[in-house]
Design a protein around this nucleic acid. Sequence first.
DNA 1: GTTTATAGGTACTTTAAAGTATCTATATTA
DNA 2: TAATATAGATACTTTAAAGTACCTATAAAC
Lengths: 123, 123
Amino acid sequence: MQKKKYNIPVEATLEVIGGKWKCVILCHLTHGKKRTSELKRLMPGITQKMLTQQLRELEEDGIIHRIVYNQVPPKVEYELSEYGWSLKDILDSLCAWGEKHITKVYGDKFAVLEESVLNGKRT
Amino acid sequence: MQKKKYNIPVEATLEVIGGKWKCVILCHLTHGKKRTSELKRLMPGITQKMLTQQLRELEEDGIIHRIVYNQVPPKVEYELSEYGWSLKDILDSLCAWGEKHITKVYGDKFAVLEESVLNGKRT
DNA sequence: GTTTATAGGTACTTTAAAGTATCTATATTA
DNA sequence: TAATATAGATACTTTAAAGTACCTATAAAC
C-alpha cells in the first residue's frame, strides 16, 4: 500500500469519520449494535443508499462489523469493532459539545426533535 | 432565531466544525494565533478562497477571532475565541487518533510529509 | 396469489463543496 | 517607475457528495 501523505494527522481521522453521516451512525452504535432498519429510524433524514454506502465504508476501514443472519426476511446488524471503540471518546465529546452548543445558541436544553423538517435546512 | 431541529446533538457540532478544512484550521490555531499567510503555509493544499471562506464561517460561529492590524501590507491574525477553546479536547483527540491510525495503516510513525502530492489523492 | 417486511443494488440526477482565474488596495523596496 | 508583499473579493467552473427512482430476493401472513 502506498503511503498517503497528510499535512496534519487530523486529516487521517477525517478520512475515516468525515462527511455528513459517519459520526451520526457511529454515535448511535456507541449505544449498542443496531440493525439496518433501526438505524434508518434513528436517522430519518438518511436515504437507504447513503446508509448502506456509509456502512460499507466504515466496514472497509475496520470501524464496524457487519453481522448477517441467514434468515428471511433478512436481518443484518452493525456494531462497533474493537478498533471502532477507540473512537468512543471522540464521539462522546462531539455529542457533548453539540448539546452545549444547541443550548447556547437556541436557549433550550435541546432543540425540539420533530420528525418533520428533516431536510437539513433551518425552518 | 428559529430553532433548528437536530436528530442527535452531534449534528450541531458537525454544522460548526464539519467539512474538509475547519478541523485542520482549528488544530493549527490550538498552537497559537496565526496570520493568514502562516495558515496558508501550514495548509499547502488549501486555496485562498477556501481559507478565507472557512475563516469567515468560523468567525460567524464565534469560534475564532479576527484581529486586523491597520498597516500596509495588511496583517491579519486569527486566534481561537474562548468558545473556540471549548473544542480543544475534541481537536486534540481527533489529532491523536489520526496519528495512531496512520501508524496502524501505514506502519510508520508518520506518513512522510512532503510538500508534493497535496491534491488529496493517494500517490 | 397478492401483500408485507427486510436489506440491499444500480443508474441517473441534483446540490453542495471545492477549485481556478482574475481582480482589488497600498506602503515599501529596488 | 515598476515590482513586492499581504489579505481578500468575485465570477465562474469542476468535482464530489448526496439524493431520487426504481429494481431484486424470499418466506410468512392474509
